[in-house]
């Protein structure tokens, strides 16, 4: 598509927010689990993309930058949390929206997926989230994480194998 929007940084922020806020917060939840932390991480990524808009000037590049920022900041947030948790015993945040129907079952199933993701090494979790939640290609994931396509492939296959095993144990 030959889009050449003439957005200012403020307009870009609003358009990107409208289009991607939800999905990026949800991506961050897959990475950090806690919804409040995910919102903060994503908000920081939007502030960063606003500051860089004069260099990006393109919605696709801006989205790639946002994804990268969310992944990197999620990683920092987890590092920070690891330090905090050495002092305070781990608490798991509940999911945000208990459904009206068979709420307990649904919540359990969702929590199991997020718990299992948490057990994975960080890179594997990142690769799986980008691949299966955002449906990115191997090349896009390699770009976002700054690793080779071969590494993406191996993280994806090891990560999905471990995740399946963890989820089967759960049942």
């Amino acid at each position: 598509m030959t889009d050449r929007p003439v957005w200012t940084a403020d307009q870009a922020l609003e358009q990107l927010y409208v289009a991607h806020w939800r999905a990026l917060v949800r991506l961050a939840v897959l990475l950090v689990r806690d919804v409040g932390t995910a919102e903060e991480v994503t908000q920081d990524a939007f502030v960063a993309v606003h500051a860089r808009w004069s260099h990006l000037r393109d919605p696709d590049k801006a989205l790639a930058y946002l994804r990268q920022a969310v992944v990197n900041r999620s990683r920092s947030a987890l590092r920070h949390r690891a330090v905090v948790e050495r002092h305070a015993h781990r608490r798991t945040a509940p999911l945000s929206e208990p459904g009206a129907d068979q709420a307990a079952l649904d919540t359990d199933r969702r929590a199991a997926v997020l718990d299992a993701l948490r057990e994975l090494p960080q890179r594997q979790r990142e690769v799986l989230a980008l691949r299966y939640y955002l449906d990115l290609s191997e090349a896009e994931i390699a770009d976002a994480l700054g690793i080779s396509r071969g590494a993406v492939k191996s993280h994806a296959s090891r990560g999905s194998a471990t995740l399946r095993t963890l989820l089967e144990e759960e049942q």
Binding site: A9, D10, L13, E14, Y17, W21, R22, V25, R26, L27, V29, L30, V35, A38, E39, T42, Q43, F46, V47, H50, A51, L95, S96, E97, G99, D106, R109, R110, V113, L114, L128, A129, Y132, Y133, L167
Partner: peptide
């Protein structure tokens, strides 16, 4: 599974805060 795990999450609206910060 991933979509099911997080698509029900409706994040808080932070546009006002974002506008203020930027």
């Amino acid at each position: 599974l991933f979509h099911d795990a997080v698509d029900g999450i409706e994040p808080a609206d932070r546009l006002t805060e974002l506008r203020a910060r930027t």
